[in-house]
Design a protein around this nucleic acid. Structure first.
Length: 355
DNA sequence: ATGCATGAGTA
DNA sequence: ACTCATGCATA
Protein backbone atom coordinates (compact mmCIF):
# COMPACT_ATOMS: atom_id res chain seq x y z
CA UNK A 1 0.00 0.00 0.00
CA UNK A 2 1.40 3.29 -0.94
CA UNK A 3 -0.66 4.66 1.84
CA UNK A 4 0.70 7.80 3.30
CA UNK A 5 2.99 8.57 0.57
CA UNK A 6 0.15 10.04 -1.28
CA UNK A 7 0.33 13.64 -0.46
CA UNK A 8 -2.00 15.86 -2.20
CA UNK A 9 -5.25 14.78 -3.66
CA UNK A 10 -4.27 16.46 -6.81
CA UNK A 11 -1.05 14.95 -7.81
CA UNK A 12 0.96 17.84 -8.95
CA UNK A 13 3.35 15.98 -11.07
CA UNK A 14 4.13 12.38 -10.51
CA UNK A 15 7.71 13.15 -11.04
CA UNK A 16 8.02 15.85 -8.53
CA UNK A 17 8.06 13.89 -5.36
CA UNK A 18 10.19 16.47 -3.89
CA UNK A 19 7.89 18.18 -1.42
CA UNK A 20 10.74 20.37 -0.64
CA UNK A 21 10.13 23.45 1.22
CA UNK A 22 9.88 26.99 0.32
CA UNK A 23 12.58 28.46 -1.76
CA UNK A 24 13.71 30.02 1.41
CA UNK A 25 15.69 27.16 2.68
CA UNK A 26 15.50 24.47 0.18
CA UNK A 27 19.19 24.36 0.35
CA UNK A 28 19.34 21.89 3.16
CA UNK A 29 18.93 19.35 0.47
CA UNK A 30 21.27 21.01 -1.85
CA UNK A 31 23.89 20.98 0.77
CA UNK A 32 24.07 17.34 1.32
CA UNK A 33 23.81 16.72 -2.34
CA UNK A 34 26.55 19.09 -3.02
CA UNK A 35 29.07 16.90 -1.40
CA UNK A 36 29.69 14.42 -4.05
CA UNK A 37 31.82 16.13 -6.59
CA UNK A 38 34.77 13.94 -6.98
CA UNK A 39 37.52 15.75 -8.73
CA UNK A 40 39.98 13.00 -8.54
CA UNK A 41 39.88 9.52 -7.25
CA UNK A 42 42.33 7.69 -9.35
CA UNK A 43 45.05 8.12 -6.84
CA UNK A 44 44.06 5.28 -4.61
CA UNK A 45 46.79 3.08 -5.80
CA UNK A 46 46.70 0.29 -3.33
CA UNK A 47 44.27 -0.77 -0.79
CA UNK A 48 45.85 1.42 1.77
CA UNK A 49 43.38 4.20 1.28
CA UNK A 50 41.14 2.95 3.98
CA UNK A 51 43.86 3.08 6.50
CA UNK A 52 44.87 6.40 5.22
CA UNK A 53 41.45 7.79 5.68
CA UNK A 54 41.22 6.61 9.19
CA UNK A 55 44.62 7.92 10.06
CA UNK A 56 44.09 11.23 8.46
CA UNK A 57 40.69 11.69 9.89
CA UNK A 58 41.99 10.89 13.28
CA UNK A 59 44.77 13.32 12.81
CA UNK A 60 42.21 15.93 12.06
CA UNK A 61 40.33 14.88 15.07
CA UNK A 62 43.40 15.42 17.12
CA UNK A 63 43.63 18.96 15.90
CA UNK A 64 40.03 19.25 16.68
CA UNK A 65 40.71 18.48 20.26
CA UNK A 66 42.85 21.50 20.62
CA UNK A 67 40.53 23.78 18.82
CA UNK A 68 37.49 22.39 20.45
CA UNK A 69 35.98 22.86 23.78
CA UNK A 70 36.53 20.28 26.37
CA UNK A 71 33.26 19.78 28.07
CA UNK A 72 33.11 20.26 31.78
CA UNK A 73 31.75 16.81 32.17
CA UNK A 74 33.64 13.64 32.10
CA UNK A 75 36.73 14.13 30.05
CA UNK A 76 36.59 10.79 28.43
CA UNK A 77 35.94 8.26 31.05
CA UNK A 78 32.63 7.65 29.47
CA UNK A 79 31.80 4.05 29.51
CA UNK A 80 31.52 2.96 26.03
CA UNK A 81 32.10 -0.40 27.43
CA UNK A 82 28.67 -1.54 26.76
CA UNK A 83 29.09 -0.96 23.13
CA UNK A 84 29.79 -4.60 23.10
CA UNK A 85 26.21 -5.45 23.43
CA UNK A 86 25.46 -7.41 20.42
CA UNK A 87 21.79 -6.98 20.21
CA UNK A 88 21.06 -4.70 23.05
CA UNK A 89 17.65 -4.52 21.58
CA UNK A 90 16.33 -5.64 24.86
CA UNK A 91 13.65 -7.83 23.57
CA UNK A 92 10.75 -5.56 23.11
CA UNK A 93 8.77 -8.05 25.03
CA UNK A 94 8.70 -5.70 27.92
CA UNK A 95 5.21 -4.66 28.61
CA UNK A 96 5.27 -1.34 26.92
CA UNK A 97 4.50 -2.50 23.51
CA UNK A 98 6.80 -1.26 20.88
CA UNK A 99 4.13 -1.29 18.35
CA UNK A 100 3.65 2.36 18.03
CA UNK A 101 4.36 3.85 14.74
CA UNK A 102 2.48 7.05 15.02
CA UNK A 103 4.09 8.06 11.86
CA UNK A 104 0.95 9.61 10.74
CA UNK A 105 2.87 12.55 9.68
CA UNK A 106 5.38 10.89 7.59
CA UNK A 107 5.79 12.31 4.21
CA UNK A 108 8.28 9.86 2.94
CA UNK A 109 9.35 11.43 -0.17
CA UNK A 110 12.32 9.73 -1.48
CA UNK A 111 15.37 11.87 -1.26
CA UNK A 112 16.94 10.43 -4.32
CA UNK A 113 20.37 10.08 -3.01
CA UNK A 114 23.32 8.66 -4.64
CA UNK A 115 26.36 6.62 -4.08
CA UNK A 116 29.17 9.05 -4.01
CA UNK A 117 32.41 7.56 -5.04
CA UNK A 118 34.55 6.81 -2.10
CA UNK A 119 37.97 7.42 -3.26
CA UNK A 120 38.02 11.08 -2.67
CA UNK A 121 38.77 11.04 0.97
CA UNK A 122 42.43 11.24 0.50
CA UNK A 123 42.15 14.25 -1.68
CA UNK A 124 39.60 15.92 0.40
CA UNK A 125 41.59 15.43 3.46
CA UNK A 126 44.52 17.02 1.85
CA UNK A 127 42.53 20.08 1.08
CA UNK A 128 40.75 20.16 4.32
CA UNK A 129 41.40 22.69 6.92
CA UNK A 130 41.03 21.24 10.37
CA UNK A 131 39.18 24.19 11.69
CA UNK A 132 36.76 24.26 8.85
CA UNK A 133 35.99 20.67 8.42
CA UNK A 134 35.08 20.04 11.97
CA UNK A 135 34.33 23.37 13.43
CA UNK A 136 30.69 23.51 12.58
CA UNK A 137 29.70 20.16 13.85
CA UNK A 138 30.69 19.33 17.34
CA UNK A 139 30.10 22.71 18.77
CA UNK A 140 26.45 22.21 18.25
CA UNK A 141 25.99 20.67 21.62
CA UNK A 142 26.02 22.78 24.67
CA UNK A 143 22.60 22.93 26.10
CA UNK A 144 21.62 25.64 28.39
CA UNK A 145 22.23 24.01 31.67
CA UNK A 146 19.28 25.71 33.13
CA UNK A 147 16.58 23.86 31.36
CA UNK A 148 13.92 25.55 33.30
CA UNK A 149 11.50 23.95 31.04
CA UNK A 150 8.96 24.32 33.69
CA UNK A 151 9.36 20.84 34.83
CA UNK A 152 7.39 20.93 37.99
CA UNK A 153 5.41 23.79 36.67
CA UNK A 154 2.52 22.48 38.56
CA UNK A 155 0.38 20.94 35.95
CA UNK A 156 -2.29 20.82 38.54
CA UNK A 157 -4.92 22.16 36.26
CA UNK A 158 -5.22 19.95 33.33
CA UNK A 159 -2.75 17.26 33.90
CA UNK A 160 -3.76 14.70 31.46
CA UNK A 161 -0.99 12.56 32.59
CA UNK A 162 -1.62 9.49 30.68
CA UNK A 163 1.65 7.86 30.36
CA UNK A 164 1.74 4.48 28.91
CA UNK A 165 -1.10 4.30 26.56
CA UNK A 166 -0.30 1.13 24.86
CA UNK A 167 -1.51 2.29 21.61
CA UNK A 168 -2.13 -0.36 19.15
CA UNK A 169 -4.00 1.82 16.84
CA UNK A 170 -2.85 1.42 13.36
CA UNK A 171 -3.48 4.77 12.01
CA UNK A 172 -2.09 4.72 8.63
CA UNK A 173 -4.83 6.74 7.35
CA UNK A 174 -4.67 10.39 6.99
CA UNK A 175 -1.64 11.61 5.32
CA UNK A 176 -1.13 15.15 6.17
CA UNK A 177 -1.16 17.41 3.27
CA UNK A 178 2.49 17.62 2.75
CA UNK A 179 1.60 19.86 -0.10
CA UNK A 180 4.21 20.67 -2.54
CA UNK A 181 4.20 24.31 -1.87
CA UNK A 182 3.98 26.16 -5.02
CA UNK A 183 7.50 27.17 -5.19
CA UNK A 184 7.83 30.59 -6.51
CA UNK A 185 4.27 31.69 -6.27
CA UNK A 186 3.22 31.79 -2.66
CA UNK A 187 3.08 35.40 -1.83
CA UNK A 188 3.48 35.95 1.84
CA UNK A 189 0.29 35.09 3.62
CA UNK A 190 0.78 37.85 6.03
CA UNK A 191 -1.15 36.32 8.86
CA UNK A 192 -1.91 32.79 8.00
CA UNK A 193 -4.40 33.62 5.41
CA UNK A 194 -4.27 30.20 3.93
CA UNK A 195 -6.01 28.53 6.82
CA UNK A 196 -3.83 25.74 8.02
CA UNK A 197 -1.31 24.91 5.45
CA UNK A 198 1.59 27.26 5.44
CA UNK A 199 4.89 25.84 4.55
CA UNK A 200 6.39 29.03 5.75
CA UNK A 201 9.39 28.49 7.95
CA UNK A 202 8.78 31.87 9.44
CA UNK A 203 5.25 30.96 10.29
CA UNK A 204 6.37 27.75 11.89
CA UNK A 205 8.96 29.57 13.84
CA UNK A 206 6.59 32.04 15.31
CA UNK A 207 4.04 29.39 15.98
CA UNK A 208 6.51 27.27 17.83
CA UNK A 209 7.40 30.20 19.95
CA UNK A 210 3.83 31.11 20.70
CA UNK A 211 3.06 27.53 21.39
CA UNK A 212 5.70 27.25 24.03
CA UNK A 213 4.63 30.47 25.58
CA UNK A 214 1.02 29.45 25.88
CA UNK A 215 1.92 25.99 26.98
CA UNK A 216 3.89 27.34 29.85
CA UNK A 217 1.12 29.68 30.68
CA UNK A 218 -1.11 26.69 31.04
CA UNK A 219 1.40 25.25 33.38
CA UNK A 220 1.89 22.17 31.33
CA UNK A 221 5.12 20.40 30.66
CA UNK A 222 6.26 19.14 27.34
CA UNK A 223 5.67 15.63 28.51
CA UNK A 224 2.15 16.50 29.52
CA UNK A 225 1.42 17.86 26.11
CA UNK A 226 2.74 14.75 24.53
CA UNK A 227 0.54 12.40 26.44
CA UNK A 228 -2.43 14.69 26.35
CA UNK A 229 -2.48 14.53 22.61
CA UNK A 230 -3.95 11.11 22.82
CA UNK A 231 -7.01 12.58 24.44
CA UNK A 232 -7.71 14.67 21.46
CA UNK A 233 -8.94 11.66 19.67
CA UNK A 234 -7.69 12.93 16.44
CA UNK A 235 -7.79 10.02 14.07
CA UNK A 236 -4.36 8.73 13.55
CA UNK A 237 -2.84 10.76 16.30
CA UNK A 238 -1.67 9.18 19.45
CA UNK A 239 0.65 10.63 21.95
CA UNK A 240 4.05 12.05 21.44
CA UNK A 241 7.06 12.13 23.65
CA UNK A 242 8.52 14.99 25.56
CA UNK A 243 11.39 14.81 23.13
CA UNK A 244 9.24 15.52 20.19
CA UNK A 245 7.43 18.38 21.83
CA UNK A 246 10.71 19.82 22.85
CA UNK A 247 12.06 19.49 19.37
CA UNK A 248 9.02 21.09 17.95
CA UNK A 249 9.39 24.07 20.19
CA UNK A 250 13.04 24.39 19.46
CA UNK A 251 12.55 23.80 15.78
CA UNK A 252 14.88 20.89 15.76
CA UNK A 253 12.75 18.84 13.50
CA UNK A 254 12.63 18.56 9.78
CA UNK A 255 10.51 21.08 8.03
CA UNK A 256 7.98 18.51 6.98
CA UNK A 257 7.74 17.20 10.46
CA UNK A 258 7.12 20.65 11.79
CA UNK A 259 4.43 21.27 9.27
CA UNK A 260 2.74 18.02 10.07
CA UNK A 261 2.83 18.50 13.79
CA UNK A 262 1.69 22.06 13.84
CA UNK A 263 -2.02 21.52 13.30
CA UNK A 264 -2.05 18.82 15.91
CA UNK A 265 -0.34 20.83 18.55
CA UNK A 266 -2.45 23.77 17.63
CA UNK A 267 -5.54 21.71 18.20
CA UNK A 268 -4.27 20.58 21.54
CA UNK A 269 -3.48 24.09 22.59
CA UNK A 270 -6.93 25.32 21.93
CA UNK A 271 -8.52 22.37 23.54
CA UNK A 272 -6.33 22.79 26.58
CA UNK A 273 -7.13 26.43 26.93
CA UNK A 274 -10.78 25.70 26.52
CA UNK A 275 -10.63 22.98 29.11
CA UNK A 276 -8.84 25.18 31.54
CA UNK A 277 -11.57 27.72 31.14
CA UNK A 278 -14.23 25.37 32.25
CA UNK A 279 -12.34 23.79 35.05
CA UNK A 280 -12.34 20.34 33.93
CA UNK A 281 -10.73 17.35 35.41
CA UNK A 282 -9.26 14.58 33.51
CA UNK A 283 -8.94 11.18 34.96
CA UNK A 284 -5.36 10.36 35.11
CA UNK A 285 -4.05 6.99 35.66
CA UNK A 286 -0.49 6.28 36.17
CA UNK A 287 1.96 4.46 34.23
CA UNK A 288 3.46 1.13 34.72
CA UNK A 289 6.16 0.27 32.39
CA UNK A 290 9.61 -0.87 33.01
CA UNK A 291 12.22 -1.48 30.50
CA UNK A 292 15.60 -0.03 30.63
CA UNK A 293 17.26 0.57 27.42
CA UNK A 294 20.80 1.51 28.01
CA UNK A 295 21.98 4.41 26.03
CA UNK A 296 25.30 3.77 24.42
CA UNK A 297 27.73 6.50 25.04
CA UNK A 298 30.43 7.13 22.54
CA UNK A 299 33.50 8.54 24.20
CA UNK A 300 34.79 11.91 23.20
CA UNK A 301 37.85 10.68 21.32
CA UNK A 302 35.85 8.28 19.26
CA UNK A 303 33.25 10.91 18.65
CA UNK A 304 35.86 13.28 17.35
CA UNK A 305 37.09 10.70 14.96
CA UNK A 306 33.64 10.02 13.73
CA UNK A 307 33.10 13.68 13.15
CA UNK A 308 36.29 13.84 11.20
CA UNK A 309 35.17 10.98 9.01
CA UNK A 310 31.82 12.51 8.57
CA UNK A 311 33.29 15.74 7.39
CA UNK A 312 34.96 13.85 4.63
CA UNK A 313 32.41 11.25 3.82
CA UNK A 314 28.94 11.59 5.31
CA UNK A 315 27.85 8.40 3.69
CA UNK A 316 30.48 5.77 4.18
CA UNK A 317 29.96 2.41 2.65
CA UNK A 318 29.22 -0.58 4.74
CA UNK A 319 32.80 -1.68 4.47
CA UNK A 320 34.06 1.67 5.49
CA UNK A 321 31.74 1.68 8.44
CA UNK A 322 33.03 -1.66 9.47
CA UNK A 323 36.57 -0.41 9.26
CA UNK A 324 35.80 2.62 11.29
CA UNK A 325 33.96 0.57 13.82
CA UNK A 326 36.89 -1.68 14.27
CA UNK A 327 39.34 1.13 14.52
CA UNK A 328 37.35 2.84 17.17
CA UNK A 329 36.41 -0.35 18.83
CA UNK A 330 32.75 0.27 18.44
CA UNK A 331 29.96 -1.87 17.22
CA UNK A 332 29.42 -1.54 13.55
CA UNK A 333 25.80 -0.86 14.16
CA UNK A 334 26.61 1.88 16.55
CA UNK A 335 28.72 3.54 13.95
CA UNK A 336 26.13 3.13 11.26
CA UNK A 337 23.44 4.63 13.40
CA UNK A 338 25.71 7.42 14.37
CA UNK A 339 26.15 8.39 10.76
CA UNK A 340 22.45 8.15 10.14
CA UNK A 341 21.71 10.42 13.03
CA UNK A 342 24.38 12.80 11.99
CA UNK A 343 22.83 13.10 8.58
CA UNK A 344 19.47 13.68 10.08
CA UNK A 345 20.81 16.42 12.22
CA UNK A 346 22.07 18.28 9.25
CA UNK A 347 18.63 18.37 7.88
CA UNK A 348 16.92 19.88 10.81
CA UNK A 349 15.41 23.26 10.56
CA UNK A 350 17.11 25.32 13.14
CA UNK A 351 20.64 25.23 11.95
CA UNK A 352 19.97 24.18 8.50
CA UNK A 353 21.50 26.65 6.17
CA UNK A 354 19.41 29.44 4.79
CA UNK A 355 17.70 29.95 7.98
C1' DA B 1 17.76 19.50 25.62
C1' DT B 2 19.98 15.98 23.11
C1' DG B 3 22.46 11.44 22.10
C1' DC B 4 21.80 6.91 20.45
C1' DA B 5 18.12 3.74 18.87
C1' DT B 6 13.97 1.51 16.62
C1' DG B 7 10.86 0.74 12.96
C1' DA B 8 7.97 1.65 8.96
C1' DG B 9 8.25 2.58 4.36
C1' DT B 10 11.29 2.72 0.27
C1' DA B 11 14.54 2.02 -3.23
C1' DA C 1 20.63 -0.29 3.90
C1' DC C 2 18.76 4.40 3.88
C1' DT C 3 15.51 8.13 5.24
C1' DC C 4 12.31 9.97 8.47
C1' DA C 5 9.62 10.42 12.42
C1' DT C 6 9.97 9.34 17.11
C1' DG C 7 11.20 7.74 21.54
C1' DC C 8 13.97 6.21 25.77
C1' DA C 9 17.59 7.42 28.61
C1' DT C 10 20.49 10.77 30.25
C1' DA C 11 23.46 15.06 30.66
Amino acid sequence: MMSMNSKQPFSMHPMLHEPKYTPLHSSSEAIRRACLPTPSLQGNIFAGFDETLLQRAEALAAVDIVAQKSHPFKPDATYHTMTSMTSMTCTPTSSSAHLHHPSVLTSHHHPGHHQPAQGLEGDLLDHLTPGISLGGMSTSDVCSTASHTAHAAAAAHMSAINHMQHHHHHHHTQSMNMHAHGLGSHGSLGGSGGADAEPDPRELESFAERFKQRRIKLGVTQADVGSALANLKIPGVGCLSQSTICRFESLTLSHNNMVALKPILEAWLEEAERAQREKMSKPEIFNGGDKKRKRTSIAAPEKRSLEAYFAVQPRPSSEKIAAIAEKLDLKKNVVRVWFCNQRQKQKRMKFSATH
